[in-house]
Write a protein that binds this DNA or RNA. Structure first.
Length: 521
RNA sequence: GGGCCGCUAGCUCAACUGGCAGAGCAGUUGACUCUUAAUCAAUUGGUUCGGGGUUCGAGUCCCUGGCGGCUCACCA
């Protein structure tokens, strides 16, 4: 591993500390009992300042400058250094926020040797500092340090930005770590120096928590089903393959949870959900990562319309938990997630944005012909359903900014959904769109084992015709269906995409901690 | 996979039609007892992504490889 000059200097400094009897990575903190979070300290100072009535400016100034007598400790990472001759300022960051430290040579602060070591700290070091809180002349809440310890020495320099506060209160960051490749490959450094990146993942965790909370209170049981599957299915996607050595068995990483979760409904678990990772061996893009987080739930005695209602409630719940006012700002749009969702039949949506009514073209050939005649893009893998899906993706999706459900989908791209009564080419299915991207997919689940078998057979014909995404026939799943599955609605949602919308990020990589990148050589 | 753009100091970026590789920040040294992009003075730091070529001379032009970003196709 190459070592930079800075690293060489820091390693030398480390040796110096050790030979001076200081452990640069001590096992314990001395001030643990006194610890308060930076944000709480700031709060404390603000309250104390408010309580301090105004007996006279001079006295008040003196009291402010002296500070709160109570002794507290702050632990965190050094992110700003402003070192002077006999007085110095550092800024410490912990999980809650930031706190300025002030130290000087003097009875109320540090002795000379402790102060010299304080000045010698580097950006990135972790320390604990004990003292009392006060307000500087410039009004900054500050801890006056009267004792401190190194907690962890930083060897490699982190690229901390400089932050400039403008007169209007906004903050300009100079020389921030911005190269996306570096940020993703060294996410730890990205997180360390870019607090707004940490906030994305705090928000993401809140989203997941709120969804879980919603489902738990609605009688759903959280379950875990196999990631390694002998037969994959439940979505139109190519799988990753792997191998079990001892059993000498080829296995697939799951592309969805669907077939296993529905087996559980056969087993009388009426409401189940799973939040976990799916793996799809497809292209990587701003909205696709090879592994992504999915929520699926299945609910007995429900159909796709009840799932629409529930989806609306669930997203509204998440929005209210995570976003102020439940309003998302995404790609310059203002999206109110507390409002009622629009519900439009797929046919009408495509008609509106392309002028083409696909119900007038009952088969693949006539539909493709009609699409080409209008100068629209025709999907390259041609089945009637895929052509329709293509129109949706190319012309409709980006226009669905406010929360919208499209419903009634073609049967041949929905092999696990129940047919619409009296319309064999259509199934009871909907997809949800927010901010111009699809976020969820749901249907009345097909529970007719004979129909299901027929669909699998159609799929396997598709597979033989070269459709690499066609699902293989799952005998065990059919056996489960033959025992009887209650009528139910099922739902799947990409958590990453929801996180994109909630955090106003255009790229899925921004909301995945360690997104997939090409190998680094 | 295709197209376009990019890769220069630890970080953010300059370097004209090919002509001495630079700045700010970080680092180092010194000054400074309330600073906040602290300031002031001095200073270190480079395989210009790798390999090959053209040329008196290449960060710059050509070929080739790597990685990234955007985009198109496929997909959630």
């Amino acid at each position: 591993m190459d070592i930079t000059e800075v690293e060489r200097d820091r390693l030398a400094k480390l040796e110096g500390l050790k030979s001076g009897g200081i452990d640069p990575y001590p096992p314990r903190q001395q001030f643990r009992e006194l610890r308060i979070l930076a944000a709480d300290a700031v709060q404390k100072v603000a309250e104390w300042q408010k309580e301090l009535l105004v007996p006279g400016d001079e006295e008040r100034q003196k009291a402010l400058h002296q500070g709160i007598p109570e002794v507290v400790a702050i632990m965190g990472r050094v992110i700003v250094r402003r070192v002077m001759g006999k007085a110095s300022f550092l800024q410490l960051e912990d999980v809650s926020g930031r706190m300025q430290l002030y130290a000087r040579i003097g009875e109320d602060s540090l002795d000379t040797s402790s102060f010299e070591r304080f000045k010698d700290l580097d950006l990135g070091d972790f320390i604990e500092a004990r003292g009392n809180l006060f307000i500087t002349r410039t009004g900054e809440p500050t801890l006056r340090v009267n004792a401190w310890n190194l907690l962890s020495k930083s060897i490699s320099p982190l690229p901390f930005p400089k932050e400039e506060k403008l007169t209007d209160g906004s903050v300009v960051r100079h020389s921030a770590l911005a190269d996306p490749e570096l940020r993703y490959r060294q996410r730890y450094a990205d997180l360390a120096v870019n607090p707004e990146v940490r906030q994305i993942f705090v928000k993401r965790a809140k989203i997941v928590k709120s969804l879980r909370e919603f489902l738990d209170t609605h009688g759903f049981l959280e379950v875990e089903t196999p990631v390694l599957q002998p037969i994959y299915g439940g979505a139109a996607a190519r799988p990753f393959t792997t191998h079990h050595n001892q059993l000498d068995q080829d296995l697939y990483l799951r592309i969805s949870f669907e077939l296993y979760l529905k087996r559980l409904l056969v087993g009388n678990l009426e409401r189940v959900y799973e939040i976990g990772r799916d793996f799809r061996n497809e292209g990587v893009s701003f909205k696709h990562n090879p592994e992504f987080t999915q929520l699926e739930f299945y609910m007995a005695y429900a159909d796709f319309t009840s799932i629409m209602d529930l989806t609306e409630q669930m997203i509204r719940h998440a929005a209210r938990q995570v976003l102020p006012d439940g309003v998302a700002h995404f790609r310059g749009h203002v999206v109110d997630l507390t409002q009622k969702w629009q519900r439009i039949p797929l046919r009408e949506a495509i008609l509106e944005f392309t002028g083409l009514d696909y119900t007038a073209y009952p088969d693949e050939e006539t539909l493709e012909d009609a699409i080409r005649k209008r100068g629209l893009n025709a999907n390259t893998v041609r089945t009637r359903g895929k052509l329709i899906d293509g129109l949706l993706g190319d012309y409709v999706e980006k226009n669905l900014v406010q929360p919208t459900f499209l419903y009634d989908y073609p049967r041949d791209i929905s092999p696990l959904a129940k047919s619409k009564f009296g319309d064999p080419s259509t199934v009871e299915r909907f997809e949800g769109f927010v901010g111009g991207i699809e976020i969820c997919n749901a249907f009345s689940e097909l529970n007719d084992p004979l129909d299901q078998e027929q669909r699998f057979i159609e799929e396997s014909i598709g597979a033989r015709m070269g459709d690499e995404e066609a699902n293989p026939l799952d005998e065990d799943y059919l056996r489960a269906m033959r025992y009887g599955m209650p009528p139910c609605g099922g739902f799947g949602m990409g958590i990453d995409r929801l996180a994109m919308i909630f955090t106003n990020n255009d790229s899925i990589r921004e909301v995945i901690l360690f997104p997939h990148l090409r190998k680094d050589e």
